[in-house]
Design a protein around this nucleic acid. Structure first.
Length: 353
DNA sequence: AAAGCGGGGAG
DNA sequence: CTCCCAGCTTT
């Protein structure tokens, strides 16, 4: 990138950056936490969660000592829950080996749990102003347009091409560079001006003079993204087994989809009412009254759940199932981390808020 | 290299 | 409804 554009970009950022709860606090923990939360997640969704999280776990030490259920509760609704587990794992590692601090080194950051090439570059540049690339989806979009790269943005080689183009900037030849403003500037540009879906506000862009896509009217064809494969559809039947006080809940396995989160028990099939009754009886329950609840669909990136649900009232709930099943009253239920997939049913009972 | 992993906004 | 967005780990 031309030196004049680098200067325009960093100046544009310093003058136009939006205020964020984690921005310019001078605390590397804030950069780390926000960058992990912002992976695959929109800024507006992150803001309230970030504030609540910081309030509960203000530093790396408190994160390292946080109870797992509490951690999941703080992450509830953000998705990709392994991010939270890796966050804690990393905090424990930092307390043990790095004096509770994030290392000021791109290569060392990159090998920490949950921190990959992008996040390592973001922490290195934003928290410590070190010369390191931080190539996220925004950077990929802005720079494929700027350089006129028409290849499939999903291919790893496109990221490598961008990295190659940026190499000069991250070498020490540059005079007094502001790596934090440069990296954040490209991302901020991607979020506010160089937006996806063919509606970028190129007239306002500080890079428009040398932008290939703008100069050649190609902003709706760049970046090119190949289409995704079809999602698998999984039929589910949920059992909301309850008495007047309590509900039966199930804690999902600690690995895999929605790991360690709570749900209403169920099976991976659509059961008819009579099949459902024999299943529930085989679990040791005697239905007193059965209500068919509305069906619900939940879409994951790679999977769709098509859910049926029955409310099964029993006289006095007790169970002899394994340790992954719990009885929770309404109040306890509100303190458990239950993913959005079940929102229709948790809302049904006004169990939240 | 490909698959697994959530959730929400726009149209 | 359909389409879009997208970083890290595991396989």
């Amino acid at each position: 990138m031309k030196n004049t554009d680098i200067k325009k970009l960093t100046q544009w950022y310093d003058q136009n950056k939006r205020s964020m709860p984690w921005r310019d606090t001078g605390n590397p923990y804030d950069v780390w936490l926000s960058e992990i939360m912002l992976q695959q997640t929109r800024i507006e969704a992150v803001k309230p969660k970030y504030i609540a999280f910081k309030n509960e776990l203000p530093d790396i030490a408190s994160l390292a000592n946080c109870d797992d259920d509490r951690l999941m509760r703080l992450w509830e609704g953000l998705g990709y829950y392994s991010r939270a587990r890796n966050l804690k794992k990393c905090a424990i590692f930092l307390m043990e080996y790095y004096d509770g601090k994030l290392p000021k080194d791109f290569e060392l950051l990159k090998i920490l749990p949950g921190i990959g090439p992008y996040t390592a570059g973001a922490i290195a540049s934003i928290a410590y102003n070190l010369p390191a690339p931080a190539i996220d989806g925004n950077v990929l979009r802005v720079l494929t347009r700027y350089y006129g790269i028409t290849e499939d943005i999903r291919l790893p080689k496109v990221k490598e091409m961008i990295e190659e183009k940026l190499n000069d900037f991250y070498s020490p030849k540059q005079l007094n560079p502001n790596y934090a403003s440069f990296n954040q500037g490209i991302m901020e540009l991607g979020e506010t001006i160089c937006v996806p879906n063919g509606a970028p506000q190129c007239k306002k862009c500080p890079l428009n003079k040398n932008c290939y896509a703008y100069q050649n009217q190609m902003t709706d064809s760049i970046p090119y993204r190949s289409s995704l494969k079809d999602r698998k559809i999984l039929a589910r039947t949920l059992f909301i087994i309850r008495d007047d006080q309590s509900f039966l809940v199930h804690k999902r396995p600690h690995k895999g989809l929605l790991a360690g989160l709570y749900e209403f028990p169920g099976v991976d099939a659509h059961l008819t009412k009579s099949e459902m009754i024999s299943h529930v009886e085989s679990l040791g329950f005697t239905p007193l009254k059965i209500t068919t609840l509305p069906e619900a669909k939940h879409i994951f990136t790679h999977l769709e759940w098509h859910m049926r649900a029955y409310e099964i009232k029993v006289a006095e709930i007790q169970h002899t199932l394994d340790e992954h099943y719990y009885l929770a009253n309404k109040k306890e239920l509100q303190s458990l981390a239950i993913p959005s997939a079940f929102r229709k049913y948790t809302d049904w009972y006004s169990l939240r808020d």
